[in-house]
């Protein structure tokens, strides 16, 4: 199917749209607020049940309850190619304000690992909703009480301990490789399809450790099935119970930090003045959701957001290169 070569009509429309846009700028109405006139496609570039999907499915009722948008947000999963399908879809919807996407770090990792012609600069960055921590987990029945004990055991027997993670050449594997390089270890990295599967595989003792996000493992921790060893960040998680988990530096002496983006993007060529998410992050339900799932409240919008993305991209690229994950 050669669909890429659409007639020039589209380019014409674009030209006119751009002309109108420029005129609008002069008229001082370019920053006009986002006003959807039909239902909005809320693209999740991941499968059902994962972290991004659950957050999107939470945002949908939140928007409905607080009437944050005149039109409903419809969650659509486009998970093909580790999210590449979703990103390409949003990229192609140039100038359409009825498409919004919620991404994780696969925004950076997927193009780097697969060579798909896509970069986050192809989209309009709207805002960062939150950051996700990573925690090193082991099964509660395992003898390891601290990260140091565990790493020592791994060091004694290279290629014996299994680290479960979501996908290949994604954030979980990046962190695993970081650990291997910092401590001179060798894990067997076992890729799973989603964070829920990863956590369950650890509870079932099919793997020895994971670097699950807090939300993916919290239930099993509360039920006494998993044990957190360290937070992969420079500061402890400032929430009750969670603040008892030491940081990587406290646990092992090695300073290590990695947090994951939960960001909102829209197609290229639309206004980024969407106040829906700012308002959403101020609701009590959102705050409870963040606390329940131990997400880092870190709303960021405006010109600081692309600046932060740029830094994050450089960091991710550097780590992936060091780990030999860039294609």
């Amino acid at each position: 199917m050669k669909k890429q070569q659409r007639p020039n009509l589209r380019q014409w429309v674009l030209l006119i749209a751009m002309a109108v846009g420029v005129t609008g700028l002069w008229g001082g109405i370019a920053a006009a607020a986002w006003q959807p006139t039909k239902s909005v496609e809320f693209v999740v570039p991941a499968g059902t049940g994962g972290g991004a999907d659950i957050m999107a499915r939470f945002i949908f009722p939140l928007v409905e309850k607080h009437k944050l948008s005149p039109q409903p947000l419809i969650v659509v999963n486009r998970s093909g190619g580790a999210g590449a399908e979703g990103f390409m879809h949003v990229k192609e919807k140039k100038g359409d304000p009825h498409v919004i996407t919620l991404t994780l770090d696969n925004l950076f990792t997927t193009p780097l690992a697969t060579g798909v012609p896509f970069n986050w600069k192809d989209l309009t960055p709207v805002g960062r909703l939150a950051l996700d921590w990573f925690v090193l987990w082991v099964n509660a029945e395992s003898p390891y009480k601290t990260a140091k004990e565990y790493f020592d055991a791994v060091k004694r027997e290279p290629s014996k301990f299994k680290m479960g993670g979501t996908g290949t050449a994604q954030e979980d594997q990046i962190i695993t490789i970081q650990m291997e390089q910092a401590f001179g270890l060798k894990f067997i990295y076992v890729p799973f399809k989603g964070g829920g599967d990863v956590a369950v595989s650890l509870v079932g003792k099919h793997t020895d450790s994971t670097v699950n996000n807090p939300s993916e493992a919290v239930g099993h921790w509360k039920a006494g099935r998993l044990r957190p060893l360290a937070v992969v960040d420079r500061e402890r998680i400032p929430l009750p119970e969670w603040n008892k988990i030491p940081t990587m530096k406290e646990a092992t002496g090695f300073d290590m930090g990695y947090t994951m983006l939960r960001g909102i993007f829209m197609p290229p060529g639309v206004s980024k003045e969407v106040d829906l998410f700012r308002k959403g992050t101020e609701t009590p339900e959102w705050k409870k959701y963040l606390a329940d799932n131990a997400l880092k409240p870190a709303f960021l919008a405006g010109s600081d957001y692309p600046k932060w993305l740029e830094e994050k991209e450089a960091l991710t690229k550097d780590l992936m290169k060091k780990g030999g994950l860039v294609k």
Binding site: I54, R57, F60, P61
Partner: peptide
């Protein structure tokens, strides 16, 4: 998955607890 989103909206934490 959709029901799960609803559960969290009502402040329930799905999972073993």
């Amino acid at each position: 998955a959709v029901i799960l989103g609803g559960l969290m909206m009502w402040g329930l934490q799905p999972g073993p607890m």
